[in-house]
Deep mutational scan, measured.
Amino acid sequence: HTVDVQGVTYHFDNPEEARKFAEEMAKRLGLQVHVKDGRYKVE
């Protein structure tokens, strides 16, 4: 499970961890979480 944050890619084994990380980063950076091709993108 992959999370892209402003061009940096993070990998997680656990989909729940990936989702939480994406939401946390989006909140911290004031950005949105998009799901695209099964990847989380924070932009």
Rank of each mutant, 00 (worst) to 15 (best):
H1E: 05
H1K: 09
H1V: 08
H1W: 11
H1T: 14
T2G: 07
T2E: 13
T2W: 15
T2C: 07
T2N: 10
T2M: 14
V3L: 01
V3E: 00
V3M: 01
D4G: 04
D4H: 07
D4S: 07
D4L: 08
D4P: 01
V5G: 03
V5Q: 01
V5W: 03
V5M: 05
Q6D: 07
Q6F: 13
Q6C: 15
Q6V: 14
Q6Y: 11
Q6W: 08
Q6P: 03
G7I: 01
G7D: 07
G7N: 08
G7S: 05
G7R: 04
V8C: 15
V8F: 11
V8G: 05
V8T: 12
T9W: 09
T9D: 07
T9K: 08
Y10G: 01
Y10T: 06
Y10N: 04
H11G: 06
H11V: 13
H11F: 13
F12W: 03
F12Q: 00
F12C: 07
F12S: 00
F12D: 00
F12E: 00
F12I: 02
D13H: 09
D13I: 09
D13V: 10
D13N: 11
D13L: 10
D13Y: 08
N14L: 10
N14I: 09
N14M: 10
N14C: 15
P15N: 15
P15C: 13
P15R: 13
E16H: 11
E16K: 08
E16R: 09
E16W: 11
E16G: 09
E17M: 12
E17K: 10
E17R: 07
E17I: 09
E17S: 12
E17V: 09
E17Q: 12
A18I: 01
A18R: 01
A18K: 01
A18S: 05
R19S: 07
R19M: 10
R19F: 10
R19P: 02
R19C: 11
R19K: 12
R19Y: 08
K20I: 12
K20V: 12
K20S: 13
K20C: 15
F21E: 01
F21L: 03
F21D: 00
F21I: 02
F21W: 07
A22Y: 00
A22E: 00
A22D: 00
A22S: 04
E23Q: 09
E23Y: 15
E23M: 11
E24D: 12
E24L: 11
E24W: 10
E24A: 11
E24H: 10
E24K: 09
M25T: 12
M25A: 11
M25K: 05
A26C: 05
A26N: 01
A26H: 01
A26T: 02
A26E: 02
K27C: 15
R28G: 06
R28L: 13
L29D: 03
L29G: 02
L29H: 06
L29N: 03
L29E: 03
L29Q: 03
G30N: 07
G30Q: 05
G30I: 02
G30A: 04
G30C: 13
G30V: 03
L31H: 04
Q32R: 10
Q32V: 15
Q32H: 14
Q32N: 07
Q32D: 07
Q32I: 14
V33F: 06
V33C: 08
V33T: 03
V33P: 02
V33W: 06
V33S: 03
H34C: 13
H34Q: 11
H34I: 14
H34L: 08
H34G: 05
H34F: 08
H34N: 09
V35P: 02
V35G: 10
V35L: 12
V35N: 05
K36C: 13
K36I: 15
K36P: 01
K36N: 07
K36W: 03
D37M: 03
D37C: 15
D37K: 05
D37F: 03
D37V: 02
G38T: 04
G38H: 05
G38A: 03
G38M: 03
R39Y: 13
R39F: 07
R39I: 15
R39T: 08
R39H: 15
R39W: 09
Y40G: 05
Y40T: 08
Y40R: 05
Y40Q: 04
Y40E: 04
Y40K: 04
K41L: 15
K41S: 14
K41Y: 15
K41Q: 15
K41P: 05
K41T: 15
V42M: 02
V42D: 03
E43P: 03
E43D: 14
E43G: 14
E43Y: 09
E43F: 09
E43R: 05
E43Q: 07
